Computed example of a mutant assay.
Amino acid sequence: MLSTLRFVIAIGIVALYTLPLMVVQEIALRTGFFSDRIVPRLWHRLTLRVLGVRVRMKGRRSRERPQMIVANHVSWLDILVLGSLDGVHFIAKSDMRNWPILGTFARQQRSVFVERERRRASPEQAREIAERLSDGDPMVLFAEGTTGDGNKVLPFKSTLFGAAQLALGEDKSRQVTIQPAAIVYLASHGLKLDRRERSTISWIGDLDLMPHLRLVLAARPLDVEVRFGAPLPFSVAGERKKIAREAENQVRSMLVQALRS
């Protein structure tokens, strides 16, 4: 009964500030009077606080542009965690467009929606991402293409790394900065998560959002760490499969280090 009450209160609080912030964000998008990056960052930070998710960052985030942040993917919470950073935009699965609340904010945050299963659409999707990178928008790519259990990193898919090369055009002197980032779920209620508990916190497959949200609320305070790796310069002449492997290796190494510490 108490857990249900907490769930209802949390949903109510999020609903209370979400609609006004959506209106403000729409004004930002339509008028350009102020940055359209302010409201999404504020919403993500407020929602993390309501859910009892505490985020710690380790390492230095690159300020170079164009920039693509390449991360592992554990849960829908990853979007809030990285969205709480300064001025990032997401490369998201197309079905996220229809999610309640998160889907709307993803659209207002100017996410690029991709259909990974449609290979013929990949060149068009890559060009859209390339345009955003060229405009100076830091883009977040969950390179595994799906969610894992939080205990290991799945192989990175290299297809959308090609968008970084497209952003450079024919200019061989320019580079896109690929910044590896590891998202690590470390502790619940102040106690370190074991492999089974971390897997439970993860959001794998077609689990419904609301039951998983209740699980997250029951786990609070939930401690998450974001580790930034060494930036990887990616040029027109670079090999996307090679750069994908290098980013994957860095993320895997950072995840292992965080879990062992």
Rank of each mutant, 00 (worst) to 15 (best):
G205Y: 04
D206K: 13
P211V: 11
S173D: 15
A121C: 11
V14H: 02
L222C: 08
V236Q: 07
I13W: 05
V39H: 06
L232E: 02
V224L: 11
V88D: 02
E131W: 04
R6Y: 08
D208T: 10
Q250G: 03
A182T: 06
D86I: 09
G205K: 09
E131D: 13
K241Q: 11
G59F: 06
I178W: 00
D137E: 14
R198S: 03
Q257V: 04
Q108V: 09
Q179P: 07
T31A: 12
A164C: 11
E26M: 13
L186G: 01
P123Y: 02
R54N: 11
K93Y: 07
N249P: 02
S158P: 06
L168N: 04
V81H: 04
R107V: 13
V24N: 05
D78S: 11
D206T: 11
Q67D: 05
F161I: 05
V176G: 03
R214C: 08
S261E: 15
F33T: 11
G103A: 13
R61S: 10
G205R: 09
S261Q: 15
G238A: 14
Q257T: 13
K93F: 09
A230H: 08
V74G: 00
L213T: 12
K93N: 12
H89G: 10
E115N: 15
I9R: 10
D137Y: 12
D206P: 09
Q125M: 13
R198H: 10
R110D: 10
V153E: 00
Q250H: 07
I204D: 01
V23K: 09
G145K: 10
L21N: 11
T18F: 15
A163W: 02
D36M: 06
Q108H: 14
V226H: 02
S122T: 15
T177M: 14
S84Y: 01
R54Q: 14
R97C: 13
Q175E: 14
R97E: 15
L168P: 01
V251A: 03
L168C: 06
T159D: 11
S235M: 06
I27T: 14
I11D: 02
I69A: 01
V55H: 05
L51G: 02
A187W: 08
G145Y: 11
E225F: 07
A244H: 03
N249M: 10
A230W: 06
Y185A: 04
I9Y: 09
F161H: 01
P123R: 07
E239Y: 04
L154G: 04
G148E: 01
T4M: 12
H44F: 13
K152S: 13
R110M: 14
E170G: 09
S173L: 10
E144W: 10
S3P: 05
E26H: 08
P138S: 10
G162D: 04
F90S: 02
H212C: 12
E239K: 09
S188I: 03
G229Q: 00
E239A: 13
V224P: 03
D206N: 15
Q125R: 07
I201P: 00
D223C: 05
L29S: 07
G83W: 02
V256A: 08
P40F: 01
S122F: 13
G12P: 08
R198W: 07
Q25R: 08
